[in-house]
Each structure stands twice: as C-alpha cells, then as structure tokens.
Simulated assay, not measured.
Amino acid sequence: MLDACAALVDELGYEGLTTTLIAQRAGVAIGSVYQFFPDKRAVVQALTVRHLEAFLNNLNTRLDARLGDGVADWWAIVDAVIDEYIHMHRAEPGFRTLHFGDVVDVHLLDADRDNNDVIAQRLQELIIDRLGLVDRPGLRFALAIGVETGDALINLAFRRDPEGDKEILDEAKVLIRDYLSRHVN
C-alpha cells in the first residue's frame, strides 16, 4: 500500500490522492487500507516515516563506504547527507513530492516539532556518534539552520530541473559547508 501511495503521490500530488486510489493501485480492497490506516494522511505519514528510515539507513551505508572504520571527517558527513538527500529526490518514489512530509503537515513526523527539526536532531545524533562531538545546543541550532537551508535549495533545484539543477545543488553544498564551518567547530 505504501508503494502504491508513493507512485500515486508522484503522479497526482497529495491533493489528488485518495484511499480508494491507493487500494486500487495496491490491488487490495478498500477495507484493507482502512484496516491499517484511518485516512490518506495516515498512509502518507507511514510513507514519510519509511522515507526517513530509508534516508538514515542509506546515509549510514554511504558513510560506511566513504569512511570505513577510520576517523570520520566532518565534511564527508555533510557531503554524504546532501548527496543522500539529492539521491532520494531522484530515486525514491514519492519523496520528491512529499520530502519528509512538509507538503502534508510540518508536524507529520512529530506532533510537537517541525519535520525538519526531527531531521536535524537525527543528523545531530548521527554526527555526534560518528565524530564523537560534544552534544551542545549550538550544534543543534547550526544543524537546524543547515537542514532548512539545504531543504530549500535542493527543493529549488528540483523545481527548476527534474534531475536537480547542478549549479544550485553545487552552490547548496558550498553554502552549507561555509555556514557550518563557522558554527560547529
């Protein structure tokens, strides 16, 4: 059902999505959809959680490939985060339309926090773990600004070009690196 939802979101957008269409595309009875999800928002929320889990798993795999068991490099992590977010836009069904749920509700991942705040916290945890940094409020704030900036610029790049405007994507990396270099060291 989540795969059907992702395909339909890409084709029709969130507004065009219905539980009936999800059931038809998934080849299940509408009652099966309602057995697991009370409405289309709940289906999209589950898809968004799956996107977040895939993003974090893929990011860890990407970091393992780049860094191995060696000492993690701060900029390799930043680049990997941006590269994985770009990859998700290009390859993950439903992601380009939904991102991490902000199209539906900025509090889709957590009722008390913005979706990007949830992402920033998860990235902070990953970075602290990988680099052995001290958890401090300034780091969280800087990562939150970096996530918001990266999200806006990458979304702009994909609005301009279905594969992502290379010039904007390259500039996003420069801008985020420059900002973070002044705030996290």
Results as ranks from 00 to 15, higher is better:
Arg136Glu: 10
Ala54Tyr: 05
Glu171Lys: 09
Thr48Tyr: 06
Gln24Cys: 00
Arg122Pro: 09
Arg182Pro: 03
Leu21Gln: 09
Asp64Glu: 12
Pro137Ala: 06
Arg122Met: 13
Asn155Cys: 04
Val106Ile: 11
Phe158Thr: 02
Arg66Trp: 03
Gly138Phe: 08
Leu131Trp: 03
Arg66Cys: 06
Tyr34Arg: 07
Val33Gly: 05
Ile127Lys: 02
Ala26Tyr: 00
Arg66Ile: 12
Ala152Cys: 04
Gly146Asn: 14
Phe100Leu: 08
Tyr85Asn: 15
Gly27Ser: 03
Arg90Val: 02
Ala76Asn: 10
Ile154Leu: 07
Asp112Pro: 08
Asp117Asn: 05
Gln45Cys: 13
Gln45Arg: 15
Gly70Ser: 07
Asp64Cys: 02
Arg96Ala: 11
Gly150Asn: 14
Val184Thr: 14
Pro137Gly: 05
Asp102His: 13
Glu125Leu: 10
Gly13Ala: 05
Ile128Arg: 01
His99Asp: 14
Gly16Ile: 06
Met1Phe: 04
Arg50Glu: 14
Asn60Cys: 08
Ala120Val: 02
Leu109Ile: 11
Leu156Pro: 00
Asp165Thr: 00
Leu175Arg: 15
Leu2Met: 06
Val71Leu: 07
Glu167Thr: 10
Ala54Lys: 10
Ile22Gly: 01
Arg140Thr: 11
Pro162Lys: 03
Arg140Phe: 14
Thr18Gly: 00
Ser181Gln: 13
Ile119Asp: 09
Gln35Asp: 05
Tyr179Gly: 11
Ile77Arg: 06
Ala152Asp: 04
Val103Phe: 06
Asp170Arg: 13
Glu15His: 11
Ala152Arg: 12
Glu15Pro: 01
Ala42Phe: 07
Tyr85Ser: 15
Asp129Glu: 11
Leu133Glu: 05
Ser181Ala: 15
Thr61Asn: 14
Gln124Glu: 15
Ala80Met: 08
Glu148Met: 14
Ala80Pro: 10
Gly27His: 03
Asp178Phe: 10
Asp10Val: 06
Gln24Pro: 00
Glu171Ala: 14
His183Thr: 12
Asp64Met: 03
Thr149Asn: 07
Gly27Arg: 02
Tyr34Leu: 06
